[in-house]
Design a protein around this nucleic acid. Structure first.
Length: 255
DNA sequence: ATGGTTGCACAGCAA
């Protein structure tokens, strides 16, 4: 079973690129973030025509997540525990072939001084509670998406420059550690230990050609998922060419 | 050097 996470930065701008990529890679489950479209306006048909099912949780202009899968998406849950009705739409979960898939778009946080940073930390605490409720011993689970957190020095092009800033802050690392302490391993790191493997590069400052990136798109898995994980890849080439997203797809293969 | 680019939507915000 092949699972991919991809922050597409508008599904309407990225549709052709996503469909081309899917034709080449044929993921069983594709988890999208920053779709930036309401459920009503999500371009479902091209995916359905290719044999996929589509579940979305989106809004106008900002945020938005989607699950796209070949097999049925069961027990779909939209939003986070204790989300208010007007909360940003950043989480969608479903069960696919016995695997619980939790797809998240973690708030960016803007800057450490910002109210948005406090919101990010509060959101991560509620994600931990949502996760705790979703975990059960006999069901493997993956928590994947755009975490807007680079876990370690080897995930950052300039760790000393980034340390203490948003996306690489001790309070974010503590929140991520609490989530991972629930028994979740970083599935990319099961197969790749080297530094310099990034999933996001700023559009500005020629960040991609200079490889000034961060690894902030993660796939975490319970022991039951990790033991089945035979491969993981970052598709760096998707940052190239005409109209790329600023993030690239990350894929794991589960036996 | 407080820059730079993209998306949404049509001014300025979010990333």
């Amino acid at each position: 079973m092949k699972l991919t996470t991809w922050n597409v930065n508008s599904i309407r701008q990225r549709l052709e690129r996503v469909l081309t990529w899917m034709g080449r890679h044929e993921p069983d489950v594709l988890c999208l973030q920053e779709t930036k479209v309401t459920d009503e306006d999500f371009p479902r048909a091209p995916f359905e025509e290719r044999g996929y099912r589509v579940e979305t949780f989106g809004q106008k202009t900002y945020n938005g997540v989607a699950l796209i899968a070949k097999a049925p998406l069961l027990d779909v849950v939209r939003g986070l525990e204790d989300d208010t009705p007007d909360a940003p739409r950043r989480c969608i979960a479903a069960t696919v072939e016995g695997l619980r898939v939790v797809n998240v778009y973690v708030p960016n946080g803007e800057s450490v001084e910002s109210e948005k940073f406090a919101f990010k930390l509060e959101w991560l605490a509620r994600l931990e509670r949502t996760l705790a409720a979703a975990l059960c011993a006999d069901r493997p689970l993956v928590l994947l998406g755009d975490f807007n957190i680079a876990p370690e020095d080897r995930d950052v092009h300039d760790p000393e420059g980034w340390r203490g800033q948003v996306l690489f802050h001790p309070l974010e690392h503590a929140a991520l550690a609490r989530i991972q302490a629930r028994g979740l391993a970083d599935l990319y790191r099961l197969h790749h230990a080297e530094a310099g493997r990034y999933t996001w590069w700023d559009y500005r400052m020629l960040a991609f050609p200079r490889n000034l990136g961060l690894r902030i798109d993660l796939i975490l898995g319970t022991a039951g998922a990790a033991s089945r994980c035979t491969a993981s890849e970052i598709d760096r080439d998707e940052r190239k060419g005409v109209k790329p997203s600023d993030h690239v797809p990350v894929t794991v293969e589960l036996a």
